[in-house]
Amino acid sequence: MFYLIIDILGTIAFAISGVMVAMDKKLDLFGVFIIAFVTSVGGGTLRDLLIGNTPVAWLKDPTFLITILSAVVIAIVFRNKLKYLRKSLFLFDTIGIGLYTMVGIQKGLLIGLSPIMCIGLGTITASFGGVIRDILCNEIPVIFRKEIYATACILGGVGYFLLRKLPITDAYPYVGGIIIVIGIRLLAVWFKIALPSIYKN
């Protein structure tokens, strides 16, 4: 139940992020829903295909579709208020990658993957919904720019596996990993920390 709640919270965060991007691009209602949908389930769909977990999660459980629809409606109704809670979709996107990184890692552990493969799976789960969203909206995906994005997912995954070595309840490393991802992303933006560019200005 704990992991399902985290999965749903990640779905909501990414759906709202997708709605905001779609509305910035002035898409119609169908376009808004599609962008919210692919942002929410794109990474998870790729993850499930990679590990052979088919049909993919959202086809087997209508909870995710209902959650996305609800989040879209709420985000549209309260769009003016939501604008005050974020800067360039940063807040909801950051929450989403933190939650989904741990969801992906958990999926990897369930099928017996090594820690490094689990971290890769978590990064894919967290990042590729946003990649698809940005491509559809004619933007260069954040993960391919110099912002600290996928790096935060990787470091959060490493932190999770280090915390698992401590004699604590299983939920604490999970929550700790989420906090690490979100914290690194927040600090990177706050202090303008970025990966080095290979191009000269």
Rank of each mutant, 00 (worst) to 15 (best):
V41T: 12
N53K: 15
V72F: 00
K60N: 13
A57E: 10
I74S: 11
T45L: 09
P55C: 09
V77F: 07
R79C: 04
A57H: 12
P62E: 01
A75G: 08
L59G: 11
F64Q: 06
I51D: 01
T54P: 01
I95T: 09
T94A: 13
L49K: 01
I68C: 10
L85A: 13
F92S: 03
D48Q: 10
G96P: 07
K87L: 13
V41W: 01
D93M: 10
K83W: 12
T94I: 10
A36M: 06
G98S: 12
L65G: 04
A75I: 09
F92I: 03
G96I: 08
L50H: 07
T94M: 11
G98Q: 07
D61R: 08
K83I: 10
L49Q: 02
I35C: 04
I35S: 03
F92C: 01
R86G: 05
F64V: 13
V41P: 04
S40I: 00
F92G: 01
F92K: 06
S88T: 14
S40W: 02
I97K: 05
L65E: 03
F33M: 15
T67G: 09
A57R: 09
F33E: 13
L59C: 13
R47D: 00
I95C: 08
S40V: 00
L91N: 14
W58C: 06
L91G: 10
P62Q: 04
A36V: 06
T67Y: 08
K83P: 02
D48A: 07
L46F: 02
D93W: 08
F64T: 10
L89K: 01
G44Y: 07
F37D: 13
L49G: 05
G96Q: 07
G44Q: 09
N53E: 13
I95G: 03
F33H: 02
L82S: 04
L49C: 09
N80D: 15
F37N: 14
D93Y: 11
S70T: 15
R86T: 14
K83Q: 13
I74H: 01
L65N: 04
V32H: 07
V77R: 04
T67K: 01
F33N: 13
G31C: 10
K83E: 12
A75E: 04
K83D: 06
L59F: 12
I97Y: 03
K83G: 14
V73H: 00
L82D: 07
L89P: 00
L46Y: 00
V32D: 11
N80E: 14
T54A: 07
V77M: 12
F92M: 02
S88E: 13
I95M: 14
I34W: 00
L89G: 08
I35K: 08
F78N: 10
D93R: 10
F90I: 06
G42A: 05
T67C: 14
V38L: 02
F33K: 13
L89E: 04
L69N: 11
F33A: 12
R86S: 13
R47F: 00
T54F: 00
L82R: 03
T45W: 00
G52Y: 05
F33S: 12
